[in-house]
């Protein structure tokens, strides 16, 4: 704790949001802005969580549904939001259920993810934060979205031949 107090101002901040009834967070520095779900154009031959492309003030960016990506059931409320993230210089829109708050966690409250036997890849979870009996998972967005998505998109582009025929 004493260490954390010294580094109070240098602590990394996170933006937390809901996916279904679970709570996740991403580093605030990766977030460019948060907007309401805009109209978007679907792109054929992409995975279902790839919603399509949207116009962000003259720039065309991809928009993905993080809930579908992670296999989480959407929440009851319809108040969806899009977090525009900056991943390695490229912008991407991520659909979440609702944006909650900015977290400024003590390092001591953040732990590594527990070793759980799971057949789902969990390498995109960078840490686990416990706050007032709530559990918030920290996400590495580029790992949870883009890298894997390249592969997924490529795959769907390859297998589309039989589908189209």
């Amino acid at each position: 704790m004493s260490h954390a107090k010294n580094a109070n101002s240098n602590r990394e901040r996170f933006l937390s949001f809901s996916l279904g009834c679970e709570e996740y967070a991403v580093p605030l520095l990766a977030v460019r802005e948060v907007i309401a779900l805009p109209e978007y154009t679907p792109v054929p031959y992409t995975p279902s969580y790839f919603l399509g492309i949207m116009n962000l003030r003259g720039q065309v960016i991809s928009i993905m549904d993080l809930r579908q990506k992670l296999g989480i059931k959407p929440g009851a409320n319809t108040e969806t939001a899009v977090i525009i993230c900056d991943l390695n210089g490229a912008s991407i829109g991520v659909v979440v259920d609702s944006v909650n708050t900015v977290l400024n966690p003590d390092a001591a409250d953040v732990s590594d993810k527990p070793e759980i036997q799971s057949n789902r890849p969990t390498d995109y979870i960078t840490g686990v934060y416990r706050k007032d009996k709530k559990l918030i998972l920290f996400l590495d967005l580029s790992r949870s979205l883009s890298l894997e998505d390249h592969a997924a998109v490529r795959k769907s582009a390859e297998v589309r031949a039989p589908k189209a025929a």
């Binding site: 031959y45 992409t46 790839f50 492309i53 065309v60 991809s62 993905m64 998109v153 582009a157």
Partner: peptide
């Protein structure tokens, strides 16, 4: 307009 890297290989 260029599209994001994610779908550039389409």
């Amino acid at each position: 307009k260029e599209v994001g890297q994610e779908i550039q290989n389409l």
